[in-house]
Nucleic acid binder design. Structure first.
Length: 571
DNA sequence: CTTTAAACTTAGTACGGATACC
DNA sequence: GGTATCCGTACTAAGTTTAAAG
């Protein structure tokens, strides 16, 4: 970003806050806070395409049509066939249509006309001249440049998202009991704004409307919040500064400092929970055993959930049905965790914990809690006794960071190319991602892509075979190779071509393996949230890997405070 | 003590532009 | 120069933690 191009009135950007002392953790977060408030997605534009109900075209009012169009955008996706999703949408939709409406069920509705209309609109948008797209993009950029920043104590900081969530269907993950409910359109009357007492109240962007409430709470870092009045179960949505801001960066840095402190006392803590595992008190046995699992397997703590949410668990909310006892003190954990991602792992544990867990299951039904005597709250209470502010999630941060550092320490520099070094880093990164169970769905058309690569690999192998035969021919003069391909004339060149083909095969094999290894593993999540960036920065500097090979632009901005780590820096 | 909720971090996915590939 | 794939980012859901309320 060329700073000289930015508007004159701009305040100083970024304060190099990481250079000074950051011990001051007072509850006052700012003295002055100014911003432009939030903006709203464009109003609904009716298209007039009818819905077909039992063969009959039904024209809807704009309000009804907007809701029908939300469903039409789901047609053809997995959402369309999810039972709860259908049921929830149906009841909201019928309510909006009114009691005496012709439409009595979702099953009789044919949204194809509307779906096709949306699709063609999308195509049209895609096919616009690139000039037009560029102009639109630049206009959007301009708005963000003008409105997407807050001034916090004289520093200009980027805001994460200044446009409120557009209306749509709630897409809860997994078997979410509220999926398919309608997220209504928000108005300024739903928005609470937080600004400094002496700062200007942002102008409400919709004429005739006004903000719900203006507050001056400088013990928090949010700029605005809202909740959907229609979606009773949903929680508040906060608008914060971006990840590159001081607020976020400082607390991120402190998080890693805390994880580092945990490293200093991890032996003490492990000794303590090992003692608890052998305790006479059942509560202590459970506390010790649960913490053992959190530490060893990097499990989340597992708060209780309500019936309005998907049935997922973490350590303290594990049920008897989620654990199986195997031979050699191995257990298999099989449960749905955050985002309904499956955790499925067979692992050997110490006999003491193995026996404890077995005992905790005794006499319980499969739907009973494994750790019935403790909660996330009590476990965190136990952790606080070791260190102020220590909580269960810190073990994930600590274990991810220490694991990365240990993996990277195994690196032996010996003339590797940058690509090979990056590959080594990625392998270390993958270990951490697996530990934290960070997953993604297999990319669409993954099979096809693999097949293509294998096809190419086969071709290359065939090349090698031909070249080898050709080599024999050159050497012996017998059995010239019958092929349409051009072959090198000299032995020297054949040798070269062969070597080149072999390297290509090796690279393709590596690529193929890497694709397969990574197909369901999300590497970014641990990079963004768990591994102390200073470990990465120090390793890159030491091994002459440009940091941008490992941290993309936004990550470098987020971790600006970590960029000064020296080669000798240690977690 | 238990429950609620405010405030913040962590998470996967959709999408569109950038880049590689033919 | 057009198309396929990659990659970064925007989006928003889903966790955790802790303070306050009941």
């Amino acid at each position: 970003m060329e700073t000289e191009d930015l508007p004159k009135k701009r305040k100083k950007e970024s304060s190099h806050w990481w250079e000074g002392d950051q011990e001051d953790q007072s509850s006052i977060k700012w003295m002055s806070l100014e911003h432009h408030g939030l903006f709203f997605p464009p109003l609904y534009q009716p298209h007039g395409v009818p819905l077909v109900y039992n063969g009959e075209p039904i024209y809807l009012t704009p309000e009804q049509e907007e809701i029908a169009t939300m469903w039409a955008s789901v047609v053809g996706t997995e959402w369309e066939t999810k039972e709860i999703f259908r049921k929830n949408f149906e009841s909201s939709f019928l309510k909006i249509l009114g009691e005496n409406h012709k439409i009595k069920s979702l099953n009789g509705c044919d949204f194809k006309g509307i779906s096709m209309h949306i699709e063609s609109q999308r195509e049209l948008k895609k096919l616009r001249p690139s000039e037009e797209k560029k102009t639109e993009r630049e206009a959007k950029q301009k708005i963000i440049e003008e409105m997407g920043y807050a001034i916090v104590d004289n520093t200009r900081e980027k805001i994460s998202n200044i446009i409120v969530e557009p209306p749509g269907l709630f897409r809860g993950r997994g078997q979410h009991p509220k999926g398919g409910n309608i997220k209504g359109r928000l108005a300024p009357e739903d928005i609470t704004i937080n600004i400094g007492k002496r700062n200007k109240v942002p102008i409400c962007p919709l004429p005739g409307h006004s903000w719900k409430f203006i507050t001056h709470n400088n013990t928090t870092t949010w700029l605005a919040f809202y909740e959907d009045p229609e979606l009773s179960f949903s929680s508040k949505k906060y608008v914060y500064l971006s990840a590159a801001s001081k607020f976020k960066g400082l607390s991120d840095k402190l998080k890693y400092e805390k994880a580092k402190k945990l490293k200093e006392m991890i032996d003490e803590i492990r000794a303590d929970y090992n003692k608890k595992i052998l305790s006479d008190s059942s509560v202590n046995k459970q506390l010790g055993s649960a913490l053992y699992l959190i530490d060893k397997l990097a499990l989340r703590v597992g708060n209780e959930k309500t019936e309005d949410e998907a049935d997922t668990v973490g350590c303290c909310s594990l049920r008897v049905e989620h654990i199986k006892f195997e031979k050699n003190h191995q257990i298999t954990l099989d449960f749905l965790g955050k985002d309904s991602m499956r955790y499925f792992n067979t692992v050997q544990i110490v006999p003491e914990v193995y026996n404890n867990l077995k005992e905790f299951c005794k006499g319980k039904e499969k739907e009973n809690d494994l750790f019935d005597l403790i909660t996330a709250h009590t476990l965190n209470g136990y952790l606080r006794s070791f260190m102020h502010g220590l909580s269960a999630k810190m073990f994930r941060t600590y274990n991810a960071s220490i694991s990365l550092q240990q993996q990277l320490a195994k690196f032996k520099a010996k003339n590797q190319s940058v690509e090979e070094k990056v590959q080594f880093y990625t392998d270390a990164n993958r270990e951490v991602a697996i530990l934290c169970n960070h997953q993604k769905s297999t990319p669409k058309n993954f099979e096809g892509m693999i097949e293509k690569l294998q096809e190419k690999l086969k071709e290359k192998l065939e090349d090698i075979r031909i070249l080898e035969d050709h080599m024999k021919f050159i050497k012996t003069g017998r059995n010239s190779v019958d092929t349409e391909r051009k072959l090198p004339c000299t032995e020297e060149n054949t040798k070269k071509a062969l070597a080149k083909a072999k390297t290509a095969v090796k690279n393709m094999e590596i690529k193929l393996k890497m694709k397969d290894d990574n197909k369901t593993i999300a590497l970014q999540t641990s990079k963004i949230n768990y591994m102390d960036p200073r470990i990465t920065v120090a390793w890159c500097k030491k091994n002459e890997v440009p940091i941008e090979k490992v941290f993309a632009k936004t990550l470098r901005a987020k971790f600006i405070w970590a960029m000064y780590a020296e080669t000798t820096w240690e977690f």
